[in-house]
Write a protein that binds this DNA or RNA. Structure first.
Lengths: 121, 121
DNA sequence: TGATCTAGTTACCTAAAGGAAACTGGGTCG
DNA sequence: CGACCCAGTTTCCTTTAGGTAACTAGATCA
């Protein structure tokens, strides 16, 4: 298996890395790690997201093969978004990042405070 | 066990997501996980970054306590950036994310191609 | 016939991120 | 004295991500 060079701008890895750095992708992926969720349910639960960005981000995630969209001919129509096996592997690595943040958030805030105080004095 | 709300802005997880949405932070952090690296060396190796963004991002990472800046009175002056113990713990989880991208880049590209073809037909 | 539910799309606008390139500044070499 | 190193900073400009709000569309209810 070939290893990509993450620091090269043309690297596919880098492209994915850039894609993951948009505002809502990881949040949505994380929300979908359990049961399937409907569009408006996501809209309600993910605080601050707009319809436009939700729709756009879902489309991108689906294109990347990370989530799956499924429409049901109920009344009114229901659309469920669920995570794919591929997306599941990503969301679990994201989970590790989230755990890091929970464990080290205080340390970062402390470092920032110290840095700012050093500058002020 | 307390359930955290990732979707609220005051959540410690928010910090990680902010860092992720920063174009260069994690890339730089990842590059520094080994030996200390000089400013211009980073500039050369991280393809596409500008002096301004490198300087700015390094400053932020230092403020977060993730990296350390050290200047040596050599001729010409040398500035070395190295990772801190705190940064090391983060970079190792970022490493997992990068490994994911390396392992699954092809799968994502394939999914994109399939998605695009489905739309075109 | 109009209101309401779902699940979106489209038009318009703004703030901010980021790129390009010139400029600073300290130091040494020739 | 000017030229050339490193490590930045500053200015100016463009792009684009993302927010707001209005609009589409199919179907049912009242």
């Amino acid at each position: 298996m070939m290893e990509y060079n993450v620091y090269a701008s043309a690297c596919p890895t880098r492209m994915i890395f850039d894609r993951l750095s948009d505002k809502w992708s990881l949040l949505i992926l994380h929300r979908l790690r359990g049961q399937p969720v409907r569009f408006n349910q996501l809209l309600r639960e993910i605080d601050g997201i707009s319809q436009k960005m939700l729709s756009q981000t879902l489309k991108n995630l689906e294109r990347d093969g990370l989530i799956k969209r499924e429409a049901f001919p109920t009344v009114p129509v229901t659309v469920e978004y669920s995570i794919t096996p591929l997306g599941k592997t990503l969301s679990s690595t994201v989970g590790i990042l989230i755990r890091w943040a929970q464990d080290n958030g205080d340390a970062v805030l402390a470092a920032q405070a110290e840095y700012d105080e050093r500058l002020a004095s």
